[in-house]
């Protein structure tokens, strides 16, 4: 069963727009939180072999901070908000004037704060997406982990595991100017969700 070979270029463009709208709103939310301009890169939609997914954030062994949410509702999927390890400290400093207690690693309070930030951003991503598609989508309670990117992201690929060796993901990178705070959004819709997304946007395949 090869679900994705039949995706047309314009369908990928539709998914890019999905990423654009979702992440655009999230970037606005982040910009308001930090009271600083936040730039966003053009979203990428790619069908990536499992092996290469973690390369997008610096490789399988790169240590990252990841907030994970399961998207529930009519178009379920997995969502990750990923930032580099040092960027987390920078966000906490700017946003909450939280100064590092522990030079290495994060305290429970810091992780909880970052998890909530991820939750706010992912929530704004999803709610704009739900408005756009008229599909009911709700995030689960968020979970946070600081660990190897490969170990974290593989968690979001399980739904694809049973159908092949690659996953389709919608990726958006945003940057806060000068400080080079870099964050990534990954929306990995479940394989069954694509039809619903397309249909709700009036893109009818076959």
């Amino acid at each position: 069963m090869n679900l994705f070979s039949r995706f047309e270029a314009f369908e990928l463009d539709v998914l890019k727009e999905v990423g654009n709208i979702g992440a655009g709103n999230a970037a606005t939310a982040l910009s308001r939180l930090l009271d600083k301009p936040v730039d966003m890169a053009v979203p990428k939609v790619s069908l990536l072999p499992f092996e290469e997914v973690a390369d997008r954030v610096g490789g399988s062994e790169q240590i990252v901070i990841a907030v994970y949410l399961r998207v529930e509702g009519e178009a379920p999927g997995n969502m990750f908000f990923i930032i580099e390890e040092e960027s987390g400290k920078r966000i906490l400093r700017q946003l909450l004037s939280m100064y590092t207690e522990e030079p290495n690693g994060y305290s429970e309070m810091e992780l909880s704060a970052l998890c909530e930030i991820g939750n706010i951003l992912a929530g704004s991503y999803l709610s704009s997406l739900a408005d756009f598609t008229h599909l009911a989508m709700a995030p689960s309670v968020p979970a946070i982990a600081v660990d190897m990117a490969g170990a974290i992201l593989s968690y979001g690929l399980m739904q694809y595991g049973e159908m092949g060796d690659s996953a389709l993901l919608i990726e958006t990178t945003f940057l806060e100017d000068h400080q080079s705070l870099e964050g990534h959004f990954f929306l990995i819709p479940d394989p069954e969700s694509f039809d619903k997304i397309f249909r709700s946007l009036g893109v009818v395949g076959e």
Binding site: G59, M148, G150, A151, S154, Y155, M158
Partner: peptide, 17 residues
């Protein structure tokens, strides 16, 4: 994969795998 003659097998980023 398999390894012989002193080679080392490596896999990275095991989570639930």
């Amino acid at each position: 994969n398999i390894a012989t003659e002193g080679a080392v097998l490596k896999t990275t980023g095991l989570g639930s795998c």
